[in-house]
Design a protein around this nucleic acid. Sequence first.
DNA 1: CCGCCGATCTTT
DNA 2: AAGATCGGCGGG
Length: 208
Amino acid sequence: MTTSRHTGSGPVGVPGTDLPRSFYDRDARKVAPELVGRILVANGAAVRIVEVEAYLGAEDPAAHSYRGPTPRTATMFGPPGHLYVYFIYGMHWCANLTCGGDVPGAAVLIRAGEPVAGIELMRARRPTARRDRDLCAGPARLTRALAIDGSHDGVDVVAGERGIRVVDDGRPPPDNLACSVRVGISRATDRPWRWYLAGDVHVSGRPR
DNA sequence: CCGCCGATCTTT
DNA sequence: AAGATCGGCGGG
């Protein structure tokens, strides 16, 4: 068998092509479902994205960017294809990919992934995860497993800055892509802007 | 398996 | 005062 176990912190080789700037330079509601199935590579590990949510700037009361640019949300108002990383609940980091489209301040939150490389490294970074399927099942779990934090806010993933990339490995579109309302918000709770792989054990929370 | 609650700190 | 969360604990 040809499984390569990556235990170091160097670049993880994931065969495929980096998503181009034009991919991100669209409405986040278009980008989000197409990010599901793509691979996020960072800090010696890689995950296949299985769950995302779109946030729509000034048209979305649930978005951090709803009330216009602030120091925290500056990246959301910058060019598409960059990481917006924010700190929440006093201890967690969450990562988004900035998008284009007609509404400024749009981005896609990466909520969960299936570990595909650097699993030993991720286990070491997430010692409380009982099973491999829990390693990246949640937005803050995923950033912890991939060692993404505030220092990565603003990095250009199209350019592969700091070794962070999003790769299309040629896997055909999933036949179990599902859509629901977003998780963990208290405003604009009725907008169906969460996409995930139905039945996939790597998705966060309980099936919905 | 499910629900509750505390942690911990930035932003509003 | 609440927040785009997580994990430990208690109960069924």
